[in-house]
Design a binder for these strands. Structure first.
Lengths: 159, 159
DNA sequence: CTAGACTCTGTACTCAAGTACGGAGTCAAC
DNA sequence: GTTGACTCCGTACTTGAGTACAGAGTCTAG
């Protein structure tokens, strides 16, 4: 698998040729020094890296984050690398917590939909909104809803 | 908080006016029937809905998914609503599992970085790639690489 | 030697989720 | 009765992660 051209590399990693080039433009993948005639050739290193990128992506990392992660690999500064990795762990854990919250909100919804057939109980709005609001059509403020902490304004745009 | 105009509504939910309008265009938020003179006015219902949208977003739902979720609220067809909610739960759980994987991969990385100071052990590539590769500049083709399964082309694009 | 597959380079397009902006109209306060 | 903030409506731009395509060059098999 050494000395392959871009098409084979792409196919081996299950991506398109354009995607490989895109990663190269973004600096995630080296452009490959070696050439066989006019065509660039790649090897196991590039294939491995390409697969790593895809895997990291499926795990929810942005390409910028992946660039950071891959850079750790070349970091001589282990201290720094550890710190970066730890902060990634923290953000991953935060995300997990949030998802667990929504899971239980949804579960509640399913449960409550399950045992009532009344016309308007169990609003998703409440499950998602979390905050006990009196109005709407609700005059009972004594809800058991766990107060949810303020969400940061910069939502899905993790820098 | 009833009878507010769009600017106040937006500010109360921590979003921009343009975002409110965008949600209206997308049909996530009603355009508000009431008018006070030339300006549309909104109330608690809209504010609650807007907040729900934002919260759902921070939890990783796309606007399309949120539209589905909010629609459940108006569904008379509880059966269908439950099914939809359950499928969301499944996808949320899948996402959680993936994130837990990456967390332990990162943790391993931190640990291994922690107790060695050697120049090139513990490559992130391996942690991310998962597959144990022997080397980068490797001339040994007898690798344990399992024939690679096709990566779903639609990675982060959870439809 | 030629057909067909592949590569190279560059630009342009897509899609989601907004954000920005321009030119009007309107409202409330002074 | 005018100023200044706000609203309305429409269109255009942005960012992230690609995808598509055009027009050239190149490689390989027959």
């Amino acid at each position: 698998m050494n000395g392959i051209t871009i098409g084979t590399l792409a196919r081996s990693a299950g991506v398109g040729v354009e995607t490989v080039r895109y990663y190269q433009r973004r600096g995630l993948l080296p452009e490959s020094a070696g050439r066989k005639g006019a065509f660039r050739v790649y090897g196991d290193a590039e294939l491995a890296r390409l697969r790593s990128i895809r895997r990291a992506q499926t795990l929810g990392f942005s390409l910028d984050e992946i660039a950071d992660l891959l850079a750790l690999d070349h970091e001589r500064d282990r201290e720094n690398a550890r710190a970066l990795a730890r902060s990634k762990i923290a953000s991953v854990e935060e995300r997990i917590r949030q998802l667990e919250d929504v899971r239980s909100a949804l579960q509640e919804l399913v449960d409550c939909c399950g045992h009532t057939e009344a016309p308007a109980p169990c609003p998703i709005l409440r499950a998602l909104g979390g905050e006990p609001r009196e109005s709407e059509s609700d005059s009972n403020p004594a809800s058991t809803r766990p107060t949810l902490r303020k969400q940061p304004a910069s939502t899905a745009r993790a820098g």
